[in-house]
Amino acid sequence: MLELVTVAFASLLAGFIDAVAGGGGLILVPALFSAFPNAVPATLLGTNKGASVWGTGWATLQYVKRVQLPWRRLMPAAVLAGVGSFAGAWALTMVSADGLRKALPLVLLAVFIYTLAKKDLGREHAPRFSGRAEAMVAGGIALAVGFYDGFFGPGTGSFFMFLFVRLLGYDFLHASATAKLMNLLTNVFAISLFVSKGHMWWHVAAMMAVTNVIGSLLGTRLALKHGAGFVRGVFIVVVGALILKTAYDAFLR
Rank of each mutant, 00 (worst) to 15 (best):
L92Y: 12
T93W: 01
L74K: 08
A78R: 12
L45D: 02
W71G: 04
A51C: 04
A91D: 01
V67S: 06
G88A: 06
G82W: 09
K49F: 05
Q62H: 02
G84L: 11
S52Q: 06
D98W: 09
A87G: 02
Y63E: 01
S52M: 09
R73C: 01
A42P: 00
V95A: 12
W54H: 13
W90L: 14
A78Y: 12
F86M: 10
M75Y: 13
A87R: 02
W90C: 01
L44F: 05
V83W: 06
G57E: 00
G88D: 05
T93R: 14
A77L: 10
M75P: 03
W54Y: 12
L80Q: 06
G50I: 04
L44P: 00
D98E: 13
F86A: 14
A89T: 02
S52G: 08
L45W: 03
A51K: 08
P76S: 10
M75R: 09
P70I: 04
F86H: 13
S85V: 03
V83C: 10
N48V: 02
K49P: 03
L80A: 11
A97S: 15
G46Q: 07
A87E: 01
A42Y: 02
P41L: 07
T56M: 04
F86N: 00
G84Q: 04
G55Y: 10
Y63F: 15
K65C: 01
W54G: 02
K65W: 08
P70Y: 07
S96P: 10
S96W: 06
R73E: 13
M94N: 08
A91W: 12
